[in-house]
């Protein structure tokens, strides 16, 4: 599902109307230089994010928390944080795969340090902790205004075409 997946979504599915993103005009925050490519329908449905290439070879990502993300109690839903983590740690994991290979999440451990709120800018620089022929280990410390609010560590299984060397 490449390109603009919104155009490919059916109007109805299993008799239900297919939902479209409620927010589509999120502005790019200062210090970032482009939108993160929308890879997955669910990601495009629940957030917009932005990226920046750092001098040390890492990539930073930012997610401006918008009205979709409130859990109904004034703070951001943990499911949104875990979804963003799966998405950006996945980008890091895929980047560690050999050409032609890809990987899937096997396990994610999520730790919630403090609440985030609508209007906050969530930032992370994912780290590939270890990459083997068949497994990739990633982690990310997610911050708001420099304060850690959420941590995720995940394990990925390399699948598809086998990795030739590492």
């Amino acid at each position: 599902m490449s390109g603009n997946w919104l155009d490919e979504l059916p109007e109805t599915f299993n008799g239900m109307r297919v939902q479209r993103p409620a927010v589509t005009d999120v502005a790019m925050p200062a210090g970032y230089d482009g939108a993160t490519g929308l890879v997955d329908p669910f990601e495009a449905f629940v957030f917009q994010s932005f990226k920046r290439s750092n001098a040390d070879g890492t990539t930073s990502y930012a997610l401006p928390l918008d009205a979709r993300h409130d859990n109904g109690l004034g703070v951001v839903h943990g499911g949104l944080l875990m979804t963003f983590a799966d998405s950006v740690l996945g980008l890091a994991a895929w980047g560690a795969c050999a050409p032609g290979a890809w990987c899937v999440t096997v396990s994610q451990s999520s730790t919630f340090l403090r609440a985030a709120r609508v209007g906050d800018l969530l930032e992370v620089t994912p780290i590939v902790t270890r990459a083997t022929r068949s497994m990739i280990f990633t982690r990310g410390d997610f911050t708001v205004a420099g304060e850690p609010i959420f941590q995720a560590a995940s394990v990925w299984k390399v699948t598809g075409k086998s990795v030739s060397s590492s």
Binding site: S2, F13, Q19, D40, E43, F45, G79, T83, D86, S87
Partner: peptide, 28 residues
């Protein structure tokens, strides 16, 4: 939960973030 196309990943499977959101709700 009855999922739809907006809950998928690029490979046509349910997105991990969606499943973790469901788990957070069911357990929460």
């Amino acid at each position: 939960f009855v999922p739809g196309p907006q809950h998928l990943n690029g490979g046509g499977a349910l997105h991990g973030g969606f499943l973790m959101t469901l788990a957070d709700n069911v357990l929460g």
